[in-house]
Amino acid sequence: MVEMTVRQALRDAMAEEMRRDERVFLIGEEVAEYQGAYKVSQGLLEEFGAGRVIDTPITEHGFAGLAIGAAMAGLRPINEFMTFNFAMQAMDQIINSAAKTLYMSGGKVECPIVLRGPNGAAARVAAQHSQDFASWFGHVPGLKVIAPWSATDAKGLLKAAVRDPNPVIFLENEILYGASFDVSDVDVVLEIGKATIERSGRDVTIVGYSITVSRALEAASMLAEDGVEAEVINLRTIRPLDVTTIVASLARTNRLVVVEEGWSFAGVGAEVIAAVCDGGFDHLDAPPARVSAADAPLPYAASLEQAALPRADQIVRAVRDVCYV
């Protein structure tokens, strides 16, 4: 067992994959000499040199397109967005070029790229820098979408993402970068598309991803004091969605709460609930509930920001609603 931050896990995953495969390179703003805007690429320039750890100008549309082209031509780029908010500049290249070209070419053009960076709310940076894009990217056939929570997730899923032959969106979280976790197997390569149960319980299933897993676990502790045992599922991957694990849990608990940091409209929670209605409707003893961000741009003021983002007490309330307690 090793204690490791998410930041270290991501760094190590990239370094290990770059040692393993010459085709892998890191490209983005401030990834080389600055060592990453959030210090995720610390030491990589020193080990791999400027040919494989590449600082770009501030030019998201351009460098994402360039990295996608390099992937089509046989390389394995890791494209860092300083935050996913800036990936909106590159949306056309991500959707129209990376996600669709395999299909449009009848299978001739592959695009093995990882597009990664922090996603969702940070702290007090207001609406343009605080958004969860999981449902945006999850909507698109041709993309895999990963949202790790723990250091194990970060390490094992980033390594898997780099090895994957498809374009992979890898949604990190700035607040989690400094969080420490016990990692039992530092060589782990996790399977994309598999959720994991972070806490077992018999009374209700709480589904979360990324930082909302922390909130769900806090809520589960609060509920346990009142004798309600919540099972907490960490989705790990948004697409493909692991409906099997969710439905299997629901078969035991019969009640479901989905937590997301994005807006609820056409969100990940809506998708999870629709999938459960398809595959596990008979297990439900109560209408499923969603806990999500307020349906507003994220405000700056501390009090408003706190009110806007999903909190443990809201999850507790949602659990009480679906459990009728």
């Binding site: 397109g65 996608i68 992937a71």
Partner: peptide, 10 residues
């Protein structure tokens, strides 16, 4: 155009 530069990069 950026895709083409990516091919040249490769």
């Amino acid at each position: 155009v950026p895709l083409g530069a990516g091919i040249a990069f490769a």
